[in-house]
Computed example of a mutant assay.
Amino acid sequence: MADAVDDDLYERATRLLEPGEIELAGCIVHTDLGGEEDLEMHELTVAANDVIAEHAGNGESYIYAGNDTDQFASNQFQGKTLADDEFVWECQQLLRSGTFDLVFYYEAGVDQPSLADDLRSLDHVDRVTTVP
């Protein structure tokens, strides 16, 4: 990675992907959105949901905010399938060095380069770093 902030974020994301119930992969979506651009960040998260769900091949999904449980932090979301409420992805929205980074985790097996290309095409995305 190019700088200490990215190195730290990449390492933290990698640790969160360590073996659990399912094998995970992930990506960091670096944006040009500042801390006051909450609406645009929400719109980007919705667009990323569509992209990740398409690549995961689990059908249509919705975004679960976890407002009804204390197991979620603020700015933490999940994509779940419409058909059966199954996990598609999880996201944390982090304000780093004045702009938002969105860290997504999803079940391994997704074509990472293709997913990253599609995420890069979304508005407000500076770059995408995949995490194995």
Rank of each mutant, 00 (worst) to 15 (best):
A2M: 07
A2T: 04
D3W: 12
V5H: 13
V5T: 11
V5F: 14
D6C: 06
D6V: 03
D7G: 02
D7K: 09
D7M: 07
D8H: 15
D8G: 13
L9C: 08
Y10I: 05
R12L: 09
R12Q: 10
A13C: 09
T14V: 05
T14D: 08
T14C: 03
R15T: 05
L17Q: 11
E18T: 09
E18G: 03
P19F: 07
P19N: 05
G20M: 09
I22E: 06
I22C: 01
E23Q: 06
L24K: 11
L24G: 09
A25D: 15
A25L: 09
G26W: 05
C27D: 10
I28D: 15
T31R: 09
T31N: 07
D32H: 01
G34L: 01
G34D: 06
G34V: 11
G35K: 07
G35Y: 10
E36H: 01
E36Y: 01
E36K: 01
E37F: 00
E37D: 06
D38S: 05
D38A: 07
M41D: 04
H42N: 07
L44H: 03
A47C: 00
A48D: 13
D50E: 14
D50S: 11
D50K: 12
D50A: 11
V51F: 12
I52V: 15
H55P: 04
H55T: 02
A56W: 08
A56L: 14
A56F: 07
G57S: 11
N58D: 15
S61Y: 06
Y62E: 09
Y62R: 14
Y62H: 12
Y62F: 12
Y64P: 14
A65P: 05
G66A: 07
G66H: 12
G66F: 07
G66E: 05
N67A: 10
D68G: 04
D68L: 08
T69L: 03
T69W: 06
T69A: 04
D70W: 07
F72P: 12
F72N: 10
A73F: 05
A73N: 11
A73S: 12
N75G: 05
G79K: 04
G79M: 05
K80R: 15
T81Q: 13
L82F: 12
A83Y: 03
D84L: 10
D85R: 07
D85W: 08
V88L: 14
W89T: 13
W89A: 15
E90V: 15
C91V: 15
C91M: 11
C91L: 12
Q92Y: 08
L94T: 03
L94I: 11
L95R: 09
R96Q: 05
R96I: 00
G98E: 10
T99K: 09
T99A: 03
F100L: 02
F100I: 00
D101K: 00
D101H: 02
Y105T: 15
Y106C: 13
E107V: 14
E107H: 11
A108L: 12
G109K: 14
V110F: 14
V110T: 10
V110H: 13
V110C: 13
Q112N: 09
Q112K: 11
S114T: 08
L115T: 05
L115C: 07
A116E: 08
D117Q: 13
D117C: 03
D118T: 02
D118V: 02
L119P: 06
R120F: 01
S121D: 13
D123N: 04
H124P: 00
V125W: 01
R127W: 01
R127C: 00
V128I: 01
V128E: 02
T129Q: 14
T130G: 10
V131W: 01
P132M: 06
